[in-house]
Design a protein around this nucleic acid. Structure first.
Length: 519
RNA sequence: GGCCCCGUAGCUCAGCGGUUAGAGCAGUCGACUCAUAAUCGAUUGGUCCCUGGUUCGAAUCCAGGCGGGGCUACCA
């Protein structure tokens, strides 16, 4: 996040491999992708990580049901995530799978280290055991079910087993200090408060191993009868992936993007384990909220789940970039849920993308084609009037705004700061009326200046929008006869006024975002 | 039960002690024609949830209430 550090490491959670990808996975991954693209554009050495979490006990069960080994089943489903992300143009630099040796071998090392430091110790876990499901129920759940199995209604039994525990309780003060001294560590603030509140209630040591996992998962070092609890296993992915000579400099992560349901693990257990390992802490855990669908909670019974098929429909009808725009401008980055609604999607698409951005690009390129035969006219410096100066100043101010906002993960506001430049172009055209000047041969120089200003402001806006709209902005650059290497950018420099060259070829092209009728 | 967040224009939200409370979208009126029935301007619209308090001054701070939501640790 800090501007003076030219590296950026962003992660998504690793996704439960039994899940089918849906809007939740795609949202978080899209956000991470947007941040990663922004930082590459900025010139930062960027590392964007996503992957799958594979060692849950249920993976074994489901695999068995389907007639596969756990590994085969995990391979297959991890493949679905990988294909999905590829199809959606995600620019992740790696895809970590917790069943990979590069992960498991390192997790063992870390746990070994924690055993040696005394942060992990053998203890006894006592809880309500449901023999039918072969699993423990948390105290509140057990109470809720009246101490009976929700499956076969048999009484739960009090069972004790030996597990390895992590000394979470020892880190209560340091965690409190972390949250208090670094409010950015957990965002948004509402989430940070939740975490602080719960820490205040006191921290217990947490079991980090399980028995009887049937050989799936990571064996506890020195005790083959125990398996590293899947959550602990999973959290380590953020570090195992970069714990190599060529990547270690990426650590600590700049942002772990997560959803609100997994905040506790990321905001408390993860940093405590890193403290125990004496490793630097991530700079931020950003916990977004959920999507609801057409005003209602998503559920299978309502059939309103935004699944892959639904997402494909939106991509087909509106374009991938349009989906990215909706997700990143309307998404639940704050502490409340956001609505994914078709009518709203169409409204946002039409007003932001078709009417504002697409239309403005079309009118400007069209005028350059019509009045200057598709050759970029000269800027004619020194002839700048108040309106032109105003436009230039809005455009030149964009980078700083966008950069500040991206640092705060305020993606929607950053997009708006870029769109503001587009709106300024529309206003400028209205003020200067180039289409009228075009009828007067004596106004030719002024006409050229005006259109150059329009195109130049749009070029700068397009750079600010490129992380969210990578395909469409690249298409637009083609129309302007320019290209950018967005993989290794120099955004501050590119956003300087005067990037367009006199005489470069300009085309009108097809509408970037064709207007849609709501239906 | 405990802790936390939110309640500002029809909608989504910004403002978080100080000029006549703002933006985008939607609405209305007007203008324009380069453009994707687009754009530009003007404009309608608000007891800033309620009550009380602090203050020269509160949407903004405090207390209580009402309404909505979240969290309350071992299913990913």
């Amino acid at each position: 996040m800090p501007t003076n550090d030219p590296k950026f490491y962003v992660s998504t959670p690793i996704y439960y491999v039994n899940d089918r990808p849906h809007i939740g996975h795609i949202y978080t991954t899209t956000l991470a992708d947007v941040l990663a693209r922004y930082h590459r554009l900025r010139g930062d050495r960027t590392f964007f990580l996503t992957g799958t979490d594979e060692h849950a006990a249920k993976v074994v069960d489901t695999a068995k049901e389907k007639g596969f080994t756990a590994q085969q089943w995990a391979d297959q489903n991890a493949g679905v995530f990988q294909d999905t992300f590829k199809k959606l143009g995600m620019s992740n630099d790696d895809f970590i799978r917790t069943s990979q040796d590069r992960h498991t071998s390192r997790v063992k090392q870390y746990i070994q280290q924690l055993i040696e430091s005394g942060d992990v110790y053998a203890g006894e876990y006592e809880g309500w055991y449901d023999a039918g499901q072969e699993e423990y129920l948390p105290e509140n759940k057990a109470k809720e079910y009246d101490y009976r199995s929700p499956f076969n209604n048999k009484p739960l039994v009090r069972k004790v087993e030996t597990n390895y525990f992590f000394k979470l309780s020892a880190y209560q003060d340091r965690l409190t200090e972390l949250l208090n001294d670094h409010p950015q560590f957990v965002q948004p603030d509402a989430r940070r408060n939740e975490v602080l509140g719960r820490i205040r209630e006191g921290l217990n040591d947490v079991p980090i191993s399980r028995s009887g996992s049937g050989g799936w998962g990571i064996a506890m070092p020195g005790d083959e009868s125990q398996t590293v609890y899947v959550w602990i296993d999973a959290l380590f992915n953020y570090y195992t992936t970069v714990d190599t000579d060529d990547r270690r400099a990426f650590w600590p992560a700049d942002v772990h993007l997560i959803a609100k349901d997994i905040l506790w693990f990321h905001a408390v257990i993860w940093p405590a384990m890193l403290m125990a390992l004496d490793l630097p802490l991530p700079k931020q855990v950003y916990s977004h909220s959920f999507w609801i669908s057409e005003g209602q909670k998503m559920s299978k019974s309502l059939g309103n789940f935004i699944d892959l098929e639904k997402i494909d429909e939106y991509v087909d009808e509106f374009s991938l970039d349009a989906l990215r725009w909706y997700l990143s401008t309307q998404g639940p980055l704050g502490s409340t849920d956001s609505d994914f609604a078709h009518g709203k999607f169409v409204d946002v698409y039409n007003s932001d993308l078709a009417n504002t951005l697409g239309n403005c690009a079309a009118r400007v390129t069209n005028m350059i084609v019509r009045y200057f035969d598709g050759k970029m006219p000269a800027a004619a410096p020194g002839r700048e009037d108040a309106e032109a100066r105003q436009l230039r100043s809005v455009a030149m101010g964009m980078y700083e705004k966008v950069d500040t906002l991206y640092e705060k993960v305020a993606v929607a506001a950053a997009n708006d700061a870029a769109l503001e430049v587009v709106r300024a172009v529309d206003t400028f055209i209205e003020q200067t009326q180039p289409f009228k000047l075009a009828k007067d041969e004596s106004q030719r120089e002024r006409l050229g200046m005006i259109l150059y200003y329009c195109a130049e402001a749009l070029r700068i806006a397009s750079l600010g929008l490129s992380p969210v709209l990578p395909d469409k902005m690249a298409e637009f650059w083609q129309l302007l006869g320019i290209t950018y290497d967005t993989q290794a950018g120099d955004l501050a420099d590119w956003c300087q006024w005067g990037g367009l060259q006199l005489g470069s070829d300009v085309q009108k092209g097809a509408p970037l975002f064709p207007r849609k009728q709501d239906k």
